[in-house]
């Protein structure tokens, strides 16, 4: 009997080395931060900490500013994501399915926000916000963070809507559904998984956004990542920053697990036209 595959598949050494390197570069730093979060004493030149413990967790979580920042960050991300969906999804549908003058130019203009050095753009916007009394306010930060979500929330849903088979929509019209009903019952569910991916990216992206939140929000608005930066910058105790970092993993980790369950690998790729 002959088979095409050898009985003992050869080990792909170059692949192994590559995987190992990637692991080292990606997981290594995460591991160090995680270790610090559960460390009470770790002095040079020891390779592993002398004393593990949860003391700094208690101290960090006992601080009211941490809780305020967490709740604020969740509120901000939720509001920004919802607003972004409200604005971008109809726009994305229009870009995907309708023809109107200036369509292509408008479409590419959503990239423009990402074509400039972001900080320069933010400073310019901050100057305008200053006159509008939006500096240091919740809605000021919401507005600035909306800009950051536009690209994801337009480009990915446009690809999603374009990928929906026109015949499916026509078949729904044929059995008696009006245009709105077709959108609700056919187009949206078909594009759903990819749009969910875009929403998730927006949420996570907003949650971790620092430049806009800091420039527009300071000093009144302190989001989780900004709090973390200030801990790392101003406090000599490494563990505060480390604990917060580990805490900040949690939402993105949950989000990504959730995404994997409901979306599956293909949707992200499809969202980018893959």
């Amino acid at each position: 009997m002959t088979t095409l595959a050898p009985a003992h598949p050869r080990i792909d050494w170059s692949g192994m080395v590559l995987a190992l390197l990637l692991t080292l570069v990606i997981v290594g730093p995460l591991l160090v931060v995680a270790t610090w979060a559960f460390t009470e004493v770790w002095r040079y030149p020891n390779i592993i900490p002398q004393q593990f413990g949860f003391r700094f967790w208690g101290q960090t979580l006992g601080r009211p500013d941490v809780w305020n920042a967490l709740i604020l960050s969740l509120r901000l991300s939720t509001v920004v994501t919802l607003l972004s969906a409200l604005i971008c999804l109809p726009a994305a549908y229009a870009f995907a399915r309708m023809t109107f003058p200036g369509r292509d130019i408008l479409f590419f203009s959503f990239l423009a926000g990402h074509a400039f050095p972001k900080f320069g753009l933010l400073v310019a916007i901050a100057a305008i916000f200053l006159q509008l009394d939006l500096i240091g306010t919740f809605w000021g930060v919401v507005l600035i963070q909306l800009v950051g979500t536009l690209m994801f929330m337009i480009w990915i849903p446009v690809a999603a809507f374009q990928a929906v088979d026109r015949r499916m929509e026509e078949a729904a019209r044929d059995v008696g559904a009006g245009p709105l009903r077709v959108f609700w019952s056919i187009t949206l569910p078909q594009a759903g998984p990819t749009i969910a991916a875009a929403l998730l990216l927006s949420f996570v992206g907003t949650f971790y956004e620092t430049e806009g939140a800091w420039l527009i929000g300071a000093p009144g608005i302190r989001t989780m990542p900004i709090l973390m930066i200030s801990y790392i910058n101003n406090q000599m105790v490494i563990q505060y920053g480390a604990v917060l970092s580990v805490l900040l993993w949690v939402p993105s980790f949950i989000a990504l697990m959730f995404a994997r369950r409901i979306i599956g690998g293909g949707a992200f790729a499809r969202g980018f036209g893959g």
Partner: peptide
């Protein structure tokens, strides 16, 4: 008249079934 108001039923080449 739009398709939804016509007494016609169409079967498409690509089936166009709703996969969800």
């Amino acid at each position: 008249l739009p398709p939804e108001r016509r007494p016609t039923g169409m079967v498409f080449q690509s089936h166009a079934l709703w996969t969800h």
